[in-house]
């Protein structure tokens, strides 16, 4: 079945069996391996993407159900803040995860960032206020992290909320992540 959808702002078209999981469509034909699979049953949240702005587990969504809808993956977050090339493709939220220790092994990070992004859109962008500690914890409660104990994830999101719409992402990232290199690392030797 041919499915037309918008992925990270671009119109894309995939031809797949209709019940193909959105996760497999993203990681396969769409070439976006930033979205991870940790459990395949909607428990770990590693495959979280935004579907029309709401966070969903891409392992529980049929690709055909995304016809005409918009999907945002971790690869699409950097572009949100503009001037991606100057910032190594990092948004403030992503940069905060690097500076505040929100990412350790990194496997939950893409999904965690997406869930956090949904929260920041709702609170900072939508209501012009910072989320509370409890709101942050609720927003990422569907994203299991086994490395951090969550404290530094909460801190990273709080910092991103404090900076969002107040500083220029490009300037902030250049200043705080002087040697950010976001290009793909560690392919097959």
């Amino acid at each position: 079945m041919i499915v037309r959808l918008e992925v990270n702002g671009e119109r894309r078209l995939v031809d797949l069996p209709p019940l193909t999981r959105l996760l497999d469509a993203l990681r396969g034909p769409l070439g976006l391996t930033g979205t991870k699979e940790g459990c395949g049953e909607g428990e770990c949240g590693s495959c979280t993407v935004l579907l029309d702005g709401d966070p969903v587990n891409a392992c529980l969504v049929a690709t055909a159900q995304c016809e005409g809808r918009s999907v945002t993956t971790v690869e699409g977050l950097g572009a949100l803040d503009g001037r991606a090339r100057e910032t190594g493709g990092l948004s403030l939220l992503q940069a905060a995860f690097v500076t505040e220790g929100g990412a350790q092994c990194g496997i939950c990070t893409p999904g965690m960032l997406i869930a956090a992004e949904a929260l920041l859109r709702e609170t900072v962008d939508g209501a012009n206020r910072k989320p509370t500690d409890t709101e942050i914890r609720e927003a990422v409660a569907g994203n299991i992290c086994r490395c951090t104990g969550y404290q530094r994830i909460v801190d990273s999101i709080a910092q991103a909320a404090a900076l969002r719409r107040r500083v220029s992402p490009a300037d902030w990232v250049r200043e705080n992540l002087p040697f950010a290199k976001a290009e793909g690392t560690r392919g097959l030797l």
Binding site: G42, G45, P55, V56, N57, L60, E138, A139, G142
Partner: peptide, 12 residues
């Protein structure tokens, strides 16, 4: 509703 899964499950 708030107690069902987490937001990803609640959205679907």
């Amino acid at each position: 509703s708030k107690d069902v899964g987490a937001v990803q499950i609640q959205a679907r």
